[in-house]
Amino acid sequence: MAGDFLNYYNQYKDKIFNYFWYRLDFNRALSEDMTQDVFFKALDKFDSFDPERSFQAWIFRIAKNHLINHYRVARRETALTEAESRTIDAVEKLNIDLELEDVFRAINVLPEKFREVLSLRYADSLDNGEIASILEISEGTVRTRICRALEILRKSLKNR
């Protein structure tokens, strides 16, 4: 049991960290803490985990809920402009090329449901099925949202 869990940790620790990194304004320290929290929660519930199901989807669900709780506790009510400016600062610190900077900024201003599916799809490299499982929506909805999100993003980037 312990061995299995640690294997899962090795396999998914970077993904979870990445998940939080993209959603917490690229804050490494906070992302690390959140990653730790998620794995501890997973460890607590590991006895109830069905090995025949996807561990990835399972751990991402835990991560998502944890993030929601984090926002709730932090009482984050941010305006789009505030979020954008914070993201810009964070992105600038990333030292990535300018084109990607634009993409980040554009993603950041998308509506939550679109931002999430795009992040899960491209930042976290999850497939539609896993995204559907994490967000508890149908795969069709996932596909639809991704398409819609890409449309909005294209328009946004075109306008810059």
Binding site: Y9, F17, R28, L100, L150
Partner: peptide
Amino acid sequence: NLEKKLNNLPKVRLRRRADLKIRFRLYAAI
């Protein structure tokens, strides 16, 4: 192009120090 760019979004990794810290605590918890 957009999708290519999106696919090239940076993938960050847990720093070694943080990884060891989490690992150690997990061992203790286990």
